[in-house]
Design a protein around this nucleic acid. Sequence first.
DNA 1: GTCTATATCGGGATAGAC
DNA 2: GTCTATCCCGATATAGAC
Lengths: 213, 213
Amino acid sequence: MAKRDETRRKLLETALDLFKAKGFAETTMREIASKSDMALGAAYYHFESKDSMVQACYGEWQGLMEAEIPAVLKEKTFEARLVAAMRRKFDHLRPHRHLLWVIFRTAADPASPLSPFGRGTAAIRERSIGVFRAIVEGESGDPALTAHLPRLLWLYHMGLIFFWMHDESKGQRKTDALLVASARFMALALKVLRLPFAGALRRQALQLLESAA
Amino acid sequence: MAKRDETRRKLLETALDLFKAKGFAETTMREIASKSDMALGAAYYHFESKDSMVQACYGEWQGLMEAEIPAVLKEKTFEARLVAAMRRKFDHLRPHRHLLWVIFRTAADPASPLSPFGRGTAAIRERSIGVFRAIVEGESGDPALTAHLPRLLWLYHMGLIFFWMHDESKGQRKTDALLVASARFMALALKVLRLPFAGALRRQALQLLESAA
DNA sequence: GTCTATATCGGGATAGAC
DNA sequence: GTCTATCCCGATATAGAC
């Protein structure tokens, strides 16, 4: 039904405008509804909670990100691909930086069906992990180890976004510095792990990763 | 004032009982107050919000943890001390496992004065980091690098608690396996980093840590 | 300083009529 | 699908007792 989608879109648009103008907590559902020329109940018919409106946006942003993959994959090295991907992600998220904490708040509750770590979001998470699988593609090394890499990078990327959210430096430069340094470090670490005499390190890294699976 | 402390204690005790019995969201401040034989206003006189009651508990749990330091420090190796410390921590937190998400929820909001990463909780965080400083004590290696270690371990421990919160395996055995594997891996990694020809790795690790400071 | 009692507000969420 | 009316509860405010 086109009607349904249009109403949802209108509500989301109004909500995002208000969130941007006044902040999330300060915006009321009554306001979102009335500015969308609807009754409060109508808004709740389409969205089960105020949080879920942000969640819906996040899903859309994720989709936009996937459209960027081909451009990111043009970079020659793993390190450059990772940096490029995260920079593009931050560019997308920047207008909504002040909203992301709503996502992480639901992340904290294991019982929430919206938690990015929970079962209810497995599908969208796997798609996101797929981006990192593409970035890692072609890296040589112990196959058992590299199989864990996409999932590990997804976790790293969540952590980096969390850091970015809390980063009050101008243009979030500190996060960019951390991104560059951590990408370089990971590339070097992967190289070191490939050395013949790093067998013990490889074995224990594998044990670590498998215990977390 | 003894009176003040006693009232606060009574409120916290009642609150914890109710949270345990019915869950955090399902327990109302009115209920906490009335079951403590107090008026609603009294509860709000002592605690600025429902969240802050959980936060106060967290402070107490931290105190209990510090009492365990001497026992933990009896272990001979860094690896054993880390595992012992985290196991004791989990033992303390286990009865309140379902409450921790309140802590992590406030962590998501950089603006919240209760966020474990924010300025408002710097004092308690530094105390917690102090525990890891004691655990690391005596480890040799590049001083510039080891100076970052306590803070890094604190971050690791937050991550591990988050994993533990989401861990539905019996007795959270998966978390214990992860703890053991990660402690062993870190011990080995530190050893490797001390090797003479690991200079490049050391330099980039340091750059990484300093960019995150 | 500590607490009671009560009233009130604001806003998320829901039920049921249409 | 949408609206009105309502509930619930966290939080605040106030006035006064001890």
